[in-house]
């Protein structure tokens, strides 16, 4: 295999799932390219990616704030009203002496999901205004370290499991935050699973090259 320079390696992509080297080809707007070996999606092309991702990140952050302010689930047990929020769940662990578990949960279901959305908003804003060459790089690196540790989606499924377990104990009411968290999780899964970081790196490169030409 011959290459004009190392930069030409950007025309290739290695499949996450099976590690096969694939060559990148320009594809139609709105379509996606799949691995020649295993059929796993390698990259997508969406001309409105930055605008959409920025809008979704802002919406996601708003939903996340809503999900933390109001009760997720309320319950009547023996005539007394109990409720939980995400911060309350974490503090309850810390209060009962489970510092390690509490701290871990704080990072997995609060700090990391929040960080991802704040980073995304800054990142996509910078890409929109075509600024911050160094900062976008640092943010992308940070994003790839944080993303595998964000577990808001798993926490949401855990609430469902907890509700099923609690049905026998008393009347359960779903709070406003439950729906906000659901909306947040849908956006979170869409952003972290369907927008691949390699696509953002390529977009960044394209924007930088355009900037140099002008």
């Amino acid at each position: 295999m011959k290459l004009e320079n190392e930069d030409a390696l950007d025309n290739f992509i290695i499949c996450h799932k099976c590690y096969t080297l694939n060559e990148e080809h320009p594809i139609k707007d709105g379509s996606s390219a799949r691995c020649s070996e295993c059929g796993n999606v390698l990259y997508q092309y969406d001309s409105r990616l930055i605008t959409n991702a920025l809008a979704l990140s802002i919406a996601g952050l708003i939903f996340f704030i809503l999900a933390n302010v109001f009760p997720l689930v309320q319950m009547d047990i023996l005539g007394s009203e109990q409720f939980i929020t995400i911060p309350k769940t974490i503090f309850s662990l810390l209060d009962s002496g489970f510092y390690l578990v509490g701290l871990l949960c704080a990072f997995l279901v609060f700090i990391f999901p929040l960080m991802i959305f704040v980073i995304n908003i800054i990142l996509f804003t910078l890409l929109t205004i075509k600024r911050g060459e160094k900062l976008t790089k640092e943010l992308l690196i940070l994003l790839s370290h944080v993303t595998p540790w964000s577990m808001a989606d798993i926490f949401f499924i855990s609430i469902l499991v907890a509700i099923v377990k609690l049905v026998a104990f008393g009347q359960i009411h779903i709070g406003i935050s439950f729906w906000a968290l659901m909306a947040f999780v849908v956006i979170d899964v869409y952003i972290t699973k369907s927008i691949r970081l390699s696509e953002i790196w390529m977009l960044r490169k394209k924007i930088l090259l355009e900037g140099e030409r002008q």
Binding site: F83, I84, S92, C105, M151, S158, V161
Partner: peptide, 28 residues
């Protein structure tokens, strides 16, 4: 991580003087 989260949610929600759910050592 599901079970850890479920235990955390249950413990946070149910802590009355008469009925209480607590996380155990296994959680850590």
């Amino acid at each position: 991580m599901i079970d850890i989260f479920v235990v955390a949610i249950l413990a946070a929600l149910i802590h009355l003087s008469s009925i209480e759910i607590l996380a155990g050592t296994a959680a850590t």
